[in-house]
């Protein structure tokens, strides 16, 4: 039996009367790319934030490398989570810092390199995501949406993380830029040998960046399978979601 990089069991989280996660079970094997799909407000971001420690679940376990980060001592849990790099949906770049400092922020925070070396390193990392050295000194506000995503990706890979999370990586981008970002994600994950978890509504993106897929519906993982089967599976929930059908088991709030 293999030991998954991330193992989630019985994860529950509610906000007020609303159950967002209602017993999530999910395994992400070492070196694989997992994509979690599901409608808006179904708890995909809450799931990622729970693993990152940004949201405290009500119940369940989250194991990284076999250690339950919800029960482990704070220092150990923090060390385990430090191997996660995150690309946020809107980039979440720090407005007050130039691009190069955004990219190497985590390394500077951990005092792994001097500020002088950080700038050179940032230029190298920016090159890996297709951005030139001239971008390094700019403010995030001076960048287009696609460039901000690339800088966000550069920041996520700067510490060479063993696990990478991607929150809606192609949202707000045109299809071509979306495909470019997907290509960069695949390239970076492959080069670093990372395990990745992505959440997205974009089926083309899901199939490009992931090996396996999971459907989050009514607070539970209701289907898992190869990402390549997302559009062909007979599962009625996945079928309705991936083909964008108005009628099916997923009842939208507006229709009730």
């Amino acid at each position: 039996m293999s030991n998954p990089k991330i193992r989630i069991r019985g994860l529950k989280k509610h906000f007020g009367p609303k159950k967002v996660l209602d017993g999530i079970d999910l395994d992400v094997e070492v070196g694989t790319g997992m994509v979690v799909i599901g409608g808006s407000g179904t708890g995909k971001s809450v799931l990622l934030k729970s693993i990152l420690g940004l949201v405290t679940p009500d119940a369940g376990s989250i194991e990284i490398d076999g250690v339950d980060v919800l029960k482990a001592p704070a220092r150990e849990a923090r060390a385990l989570r430090q191997q996660i790099g995150m690309l946020f949906q809107n980039g979440a770049l720090f407005d007050s810092l130039p691009v190069w400092e955004n990219v190497t922020f985590g390394l500077l925070a951990q005092k792994k390199l001097s500020r002088a070396k950080a700038r050179d390193m940032a230029v190298e990392i920016l090159a890996q995501v297709g951005l030139g050295a001239d971008v390094a000194g700019l403010s995030p506000a001076d960048l287009s949406g696609g460039m901000q995503k690339r800088v966000g990706l550069a920041r996520a890979i700067a510490a060479r993380p063993a696990i990478m999370f991607f929150d809606e990586p192609t949202t707000g981008l045109d299809p071509i830029m979306g495909a470019v970002i997907d290509e960069l994600i695949v390239d970076c994950v492959k080069r670093l040998g990372s395990t990745s978890v992505a959440i997205t509504h974009d089926m083309a993106s899901a199939q490009r960046i992931a090996d396996k897929a999971a459907m989050l519906f009514e607070g539970k993982i209701t289907w898992t399978g190869p990402a390549g089967e997302l559009l062909t599976t007979s599962d009625p929930v996945v079928d309705q979601f991936t083909h964008g059908r108005a009628h099916g088991p997923i009842q939208m709030a507006l229709r009730k």
């Binding site: 990152l52 809107n90 770049l93």
Partner: peptide
């Protein structure tokens, strides 16, 4: 206004993922 904007644009969450305690920073 600055911290509020950082909160709603996920910048405070981003700090946490980059080994930085937001309260401290």
């Amino acid at each position: 206004a600055e911290l509020g904007t950082m909160r709603v644009t996920d910048q405070i969450d981003a700090l946490s993922t980059l080994s930085t305690e937001p309260m401290k920073y």
